[in-house]
Design a protein around this nucleic acid. Sequence first.
DNA 1: TAGTTTAATGAAATTAATTATCAACTGACG
DNA 2: CGTCAGTTGATAATTAATTTCATTAAACTA
Lengths: 147, 147
Amino acid sequence: MYSDELLKNQLNERGLRFTPQRLKILQIFQSLPRGEHWSAEELYTKLVEQKENISMSTVYRTLHVMTNLGILRELELAEDHKHYELNRSSSEHHHHLICVQCNQTIEFTEEIIDYIGNKQAKAMGYHVLDCQLNLYGICASCQQNPQ
Amino acid sequence: MYSDELLKNQLNERGLRFTPQRLKILQIFQSLPRGEHWSAEELYTKLVEQKENISMSTVYRTLHVMTNLGILRELELAEDHKHYELNRSSSEHHHHLICVQCNQTIEFTEEIIDYIGNKQAKAMGYHVLDCQLNLYGICASCQQNPQ
DNA sequence: TAGTTTAATGAAATTAATTATCAACTGACG
DNA sequence: CGTCAGTTGATAATTAATTTCATTAAACTA
């Protein structure tokens, strides 16, 4: 889990600033159940509900900053917009199986994938931020009811 | 490699039609070097160059159809739009390592990933169309020159 | 092979997500 | 406390992608 201090340090190390808006957004993601991912729009709606005055611009900017710090992961699943979720530790880290017909999305954990991914990336001199295996296919139900 | 007949059969099986536009677009992807991926815009430009009268709507529609048939793979890499490439056989199948700072993209092959992905998907009753491992990180060069 | 049906196409209008702009504000740091 | 530079909010602008609909043409059938 990210503490306020950890977020502050991570931002300041990069010359970025620790703001109430960024903290609030991180806290919302931390409060979500494991595996739940939100769009920018959904996050904004939640902020409005909570009477937080954070603009849509700031929402988008914060999502980018936190993704580039490796705090959040940006998911491109079936929908036509991005989703974000907390980038959890390896044992809680998961991947996605997506039906291209009905958009059903199933999460699964397979630690060997992360191990191999990290190994590959490090071999190329990369500092890894996120490792995503996306499997696209047709679910059992859609195979029986085509179209 | 896809023959005209194979494309026609695959389309007709699903109640879809074999059209000159779809064939032409498949042929273009088949002519690209391994690993080269194009956006809808780039494909359209190529078609205009070749004096093919295919509309942008048809380009988008064809890309979707072929992705859902498993003929093409839809990639969401560093750029802000999708890229497409031929979905090649497993030994030529590759994954992507992307620098979130400079957008450098490196391809790599790791057959074990595809093996595990297929196993997982089949265990859930899925018919697999594509398996994509995306690794996001910061390349060696960007680690030295932050920002 | 002509006739019927229904999917596909092209052109234009439209949508939705995301990004850019810029003046005002406020963290970080000395 | 004061300065500097990054951040914010409001709005405008952009861009990729989708929808609409009249027309065209594959696929199938008699």
